[in-house]
Design a protein around this nucleic acid. Structure first.
Lengths: 338, 338
DNA sequence: CTGAAAGCGCTTACAG
DNA sequence: CTGAAAGCGCTTACAG
């Protein structure tokens, strides 16, 4: 390479890396660029990492679950990383990878410059490891007390969007299948739901809020509990899609009808939504943007900057067939939701 | 590090790497191991890669689609890689990553030692790039004319398993929703289906074989076509789960009943199978084993060895509710499948 | 504007 | 059995 352009390798390096403020004759620059192109020259990543003490790589940690959410997050992060000349590793939490990779392989040996934490259990631990060996970290839609390194959705407004839509369909008895209380996303979605009910002048009924676990089986149980109440709801907001999928199967077990007797909206979208029975109405969250912004922050912010950002991306109501105008209640008074 | 154990760093290196045939006093070795442990020493990956001309990393290329299949493949590959002290990158085909990463970032600059090709479109191209710059490649359940570097399932016997089960349920009119003709997996599954029919003495009816595209919409169309035939089938084997999900929705559109009038089996399992309507019977393939074996081959075989392996892992029939004994046909003769 | 030199942290043949 | 030395391919202050 050095000789192809007839210049020293240090010149090639500075041209290749776009060294700002590097003074070079236009003709020389052109010659360098041309011969790197012709030779298909790629700087060796190992040499570069070693010398520059920078790996140009990030690691994204996602939970064990094979949720479609995380394929979106991964894509968003990948694209953003590549754009900036970084490479993106992805590790899932359980299942061996993080156990083995977490501290030993990935974190400690200079293979990554930063960590995107979208996982569930290990995030705190990994954050602390990162801190100790000074690798910058960023929580992705996770928020941990006392750690000012996160970027989150406006989870509350996702729940609000769902309630708004149901209220517009004249529902007054809108229940909520919540996520696990220790998940920050879950509590913010829940409070968004409560506030939205209030704004519409609807009653907040504790028995209409069922805590579940973000999993299908839990969603099914929650729905069955709701429908066996003296006053069952006419609509349900599920805190995530897995709960909603479970709820849909719970509906069939108790013999209710969606959307005739019960409307369901899930927070987060999923690819199979169109093929569920009935197709599921969802609130689609800007997952790619979240991840992309996370990568951007990792490249631009210092490792000890405080980052507490609420992403202002567009949430989209995906109207499908699990929601409908509230049915006339079969109560003696013939009273109807206003 | 050098001084903590009171030995030269070259000793540490040879101990750490388990250099075979390295003669060292047991006491010295113990001292080295103890101080690496105490210090939490991790060799710098960049320095090591540079010196050893080996990155200890593989790259797995999967298709664009966010299919649950590939999360399994990824996990299997990750685990196997880690076990061998390698790291696993994953890149999806479209969506930017491979476009940018494929040749330039990942392949050319020494970040990876080998490529696992599970993608659809780009695999040939990437294989050729790998060959040119001598990075070893291996196709994962893909087979390309003239390239002896692959490991595949016994795709034919997956289809056979499905047919066997349906025949056991006394079905005689077993249709097939095939994958795209240019996919090798698809043609081997199809021929497995045909052979299995013959073995059971069942007629092979061309109109009962519909070519689709491995996607839900195609599966739905294929099913509608099958059910509008003069002699519709009583059972269908779908070449993959996406087709089957589509078929299930097609069933509802034409007003058929699963499993009362039509049984459906899909090749490959999916997490949501229990929550489809009805829960989908599947043939679960040993995806993790496939990927793990792929990694093993990449570490043990030479870059120019011929590899043409058929994985002998267990395929598992997941009986759910989309299959049932064939119903009495409402034909005048009352004839029944034997 | 361009080049020569040092050095990142390892591994590995070689010397003792 | 242990250590000294070279060198992997870059980047980056520095000299000219």
């Amino acid at each position: 390479m050095l000789h192809a352009a007839g210049v020293d390798r240090s010149i090639v390096s500075r041209v290749t890396n776009g060294d700002p403020g590097f003074a070079i004759r236009a003709e020389t620059r052109a010659r360098v660029i041309e011969s790197t192109r012709v030779l298909g020259y790629q700087p060796n990543a190992a040499a570069r990492s070693l010398r520059a003490a920078q790996a140009r790589a990030f690691d994204l940690i996602i939970p064990n679950c094979a949720s479609p959410i995380y394929t979106e997050v991964t894509k968003g992060a990948e694209e953003a990383a590549i754009q900036r000349g970084f490479v993106l590793f992805t590790a899932s939490e359980k299942e061996g990878s993080l156990g083995a990779l977490g501290q030993t392989e990935i974190l400690g040996n200079g293979r990554v410059d930063g960590l995107l934490l979208a996982g569930a259990n290990s995030t705190n631990y990994v954050h602390n490891v990162g801190k100790r060996i000074s690798i910058s970290t960023l929580f992705l839609n996770r928020r941990v007390r006392g750690i000012q390194r996160f970027i989150i959705f406006n989870n509350a407004s996702a729940a609000r969007l769902a309630v708004d839509y149901l209220a517009e369909l004249s529902h007054r008895l809108i229940a909520y299948i919540a996520g696990p209380p220790d998940a920050g996303t879950a509590s913010r979605r829940l409070s968004g739901y409560v506030k939205a009910l209030r704004r519409h002048g609807l009653p907040v009924n504790c028995s209409h809020i069922v805590t579940a676990d973000y999993l299908p089986a839990g969603g099914a149980r929650a729905l069955e509990a709701l429908m066996s109440l003296p006053t069952p709801p006419t609509a349900v907001v599920a805190a995530n899609t897995a709960s909603a999928v479970g709820a849909l199967s719970g509906v069939r077990r108790v013999g209710a009808c969606v959307p005739e007797r019960l409307s369901i909206v899930a927070i987060h979208d999923l690819e199979l939504a169109d093929y569920l029975v009935p197709p599921l109405t969802t609130i689609k969250m800007p997952l790619r943007e979240l991840a992309a912004r996370g990568v951007e922050l990792l490249t631009t912010a210092n490792a000890d900057d405080q980052i507490a950002e609420v992403l202002d991306g567009e949430m989209k109501l995906m109207r499908r067939e699990s929601t409908a105008e509230v049915a006339d209640l079969e109560q003696p008074s013939g009273e109807k939701g206003r």
